[in-house]
Structures are given as C-alpha cells and as structure tokens.
C-alpha cells in the first residue's frame, strides 16, 4: 500500500479510535458500571467521578510509561549487562569502566563540557542583546522575525548552510565559502579547512547551534524585558544612570529567573546534540560528542552495553536540571 495513503488512513483511524475510546469508556462508566440511578445513585456518581480522571489520562500515561519511563529503567539495566552468545549477562560496571578507558569517550565528554559552557552562554548573551536592541526600534519586529527564523531550520539543513560558509577552495581559486573569503580578504595567508582544525573546529560546530538557539533566547527574554515595571527603569534614569548601567543593574537582575530558564533549556538541548555533529564531521577531527558517540556504539559497533552506558551518562548530566525543573513546577503549583 502507498505509505501516504496509509498515513491518511492511520490519521483517520487513530482519531476515530481516540474519540471512540474516550466517548465509549465514559458511557460504559456512567451507564453500565456505575449507573446514576437506582438506590446507589449518589454513591455511584461519586465512584464514577473517581475513576473518570484515569480514563482521560490512560492513553497518555500508557504512551509516556512505555516510551519514556520504561526505557530509562531498561537502559540502566542494559548498561549493566553484556551480550554473551545470544543472551545477556550481568557484568556490573564493566561497561562504564571500558567506556571510561576509551580515548574517544573522554574526548566526547570533554567536548560536551565545552559545548555546555559555550553554547548556552553565547545563545543567551546574543539573545539578550537582540531582545534589548530590537525592543527600541520601529522595525524591531521584522528584525526579530529574521533572527528567530533559524529555529524553523533543521539541524541537518543548518549543517549544510554552515558547511557552505566554512567551505575551502585551494589557494588561487576564488573562495566560495564566505568565511575563507573574509579571512583571505583580511590578510590570511591560505584558505583554512575550518572543520578539520582540532579543538577550534568544536567552536565552528557550536556556532551553528548558537545561530539556531539565539532566536529562542531572544523571544523569551524580550517578553521578560517588556514585563519589567517602567518605574524602576525611569527611577534609575532620573537618578542619572546611563543606558549600560540601567541594562546591567536594573533590567538584568529583574529577569534573572527567565535567563536561568533559557539557560537550562538550551543546556538540555546541548546535552542531546547529535544531528549537527553527525552531519558535519561525524565526530572526526576530535569533535566527538556524547550523543554521537553513543549512536556510534549502538548502531555501528552494535555494542548495546557500552551504548546504553553512554546514554546513562547523558541522563546523569540532565538529572540536576530535571530535579530543578520539578522543584520549580511544584513550588508554582502550591
């Protein structure tokens, strides 16, 4: 069958099944199991209302449980086992030890740390700058829209876009990558293949993510900046504070909470970064990151034990943010 047709059928079918499930389960609950009539009518209504939330929640909980909660436990289990023949055997922390002894893993971990420092900081800083500047001018909305645009572009698309920027032609030919054209124009001696210069090439990969994430930071921080009470800013200006001082000492402290949210959101994205590295260097030239290392282990080396251990390391790094988010959400609900 044509997959597109299959897609249409599955949409119609899935919607029908969902609506059918929610409708009929409610009907059965109210009419058959706990009918709101007879001598126990009142009791039955109460019982039905106790069960109903779970009817509403059931499909979502099922999906979340099977596809997100169970894999966390299963990955943990797999990371402690090793394939022996056709079965699996518990090996304790062997996979982690083996992984730690691999230079490629340490490289990935180190690079990820570098990403973790640079990308959230740069994205937030550029986003804050863009938010503050565009809020003051007439064509700010258009400017914002254009800076925000890379958000819609896939990591793979962005990888192609930036590969063209970094492209290098032999000396003597016209450069078609704009970075080399600028570099030679400023007096550089030879075209550089930017993505193969160890250590620094990490930053050229990070630039792609910063380029994508700045728009996100800008949108959120711009909303926060607008929420600052005018009086505080006016009072500071009357007291003789210059624009820089107003920005850093009046505005930034008031939106610190939002900056933190932006920072952590981008941090989570950075920890999972895969597509950019996979498409641009595939971890060669010392640009390996954890997610790509793990993908290598899982699907190229077929080593599920070590691959799962790699995934657990990513999970471990995300955990502090997870806890902090949950803590904040609970505080807010009270």
């Amino acid at each position: 069958m044509n997959p597109a047709l299959q897609g249409v059928i599955i949409v119609v079918l899935a919607v029908a099944v969902c609506v059918g499930y929610f409708w009929s389960s409610n009907q059965i609950l109210d009419r058959v199991i706990f009918p709101a009539k007879g001598e126990k009518a009142g009791q039955n209504i109460n019982r039905a209302n106790m069960v109903r939330p779970w009817l509403f929640l059931f499909p979502a909980l099922l999906v979340l449980g099977v596809y997100l909660a169970y894999p966390v436990v299963e990955t943990l289990r797999l990371s402690l086992t090793q394939r022996v023949g056709s079965g699996y055997e518990f090996v304790g922390f062997d996979n982690y030890v083996q992984m730690w002894n691999e230079p490629k893993f340490r490289e990935a971990l180190l690079n990820n740390m570098l990403w973790l420092v640079v990308v959230p900081a740069a994205s937030t800083a550029f986003g804050l700058l863009a938010a503050q500047l565009t809020d003051r001018i007439g064509w700010g909305a258009v400017a914002k829209s254009l800076i925000f645009m890379p958000m819609a572009i896939s990591f793979v698309g962005a990888a192609v876009i930036w590969k063209l920027v970094y492209d290098a032609r032999p000396l003597g030919q016209d450069q078609i990558g704009i970075l080399n054209a600028i570099y030679l124009g400023l007096g550089g001696d030879a075209p550089q293949t930017w993505l193969t210069i160890p250590f620094w090439n990490n930053f050229f990969l990070m630039a792609v993510l910063v380029w994508i994430q700045t728009g996100f930071a800008m949108v959120i921080l711009s909303a926060a900046l607008r929420g600052i009470p005018e009086e505080t800013v006016e009072a500071a200006i009357v007291d003789g504070a210059g624009p820089l001082r107003v920005f850093f000492q009046i505005k930034v402290p008031q939106i610190m909470g939002t900056i933190l949210v932006v920072w952590t959101t981008i941090t989570v994205i950075v920890l999972k970064i895969f597509d950019i590295v996979y498409a641009m260097t595939n971890g060669q030239f010392e640009t390996q990151v954890l997610a790509n290392y793990m993908y290598d282990k899982l699907f190229r080396a077929n080593d599920w034990g070590v691959g799962s251990a790699g995934a657990m390391v990513i999970m471990l790094l995300v955990t502090p943010i997870l806890v902090w988010n949950v803590y904040n959400a609970r505080k807010e609900m009270r």
Binding site: M50, P53, W54, L57, L61, L64, Y67, L68, A69, Y70, P71, V72, E74, T75, L78, V268, L271, K272, F274, A291, M294, Y295, L298, W304, G307, S308, A311, M312, I314, M315, V318, I321, L322, N325, V326, A329, R330, M333
Partner: peptide, 25 residues
C-alpha cells in the same frame, strides 16, 4: 483526584529525559 500533583511533576520530569535513552529499549 489523588496523585494529580505527582503526575504533573512526572510530566515536567519527562520533558527533559533525553530520547537517546529510548532508542535501544
């Protein structure tokens, strides 16, 4: 219903779970 706050917290937690963990299982 009882456990509602807990479920909301669980959803917030799952929001950041890396999908890399889900691949093999």
């Amino acid at each position: 219903f009882p456990g509602r706050a807990l479920l909301v917290a669980a959803v917030v937690a799952l929001l950041v779970v890396p999908l890399q963990l889900a691949l093999i299982p």
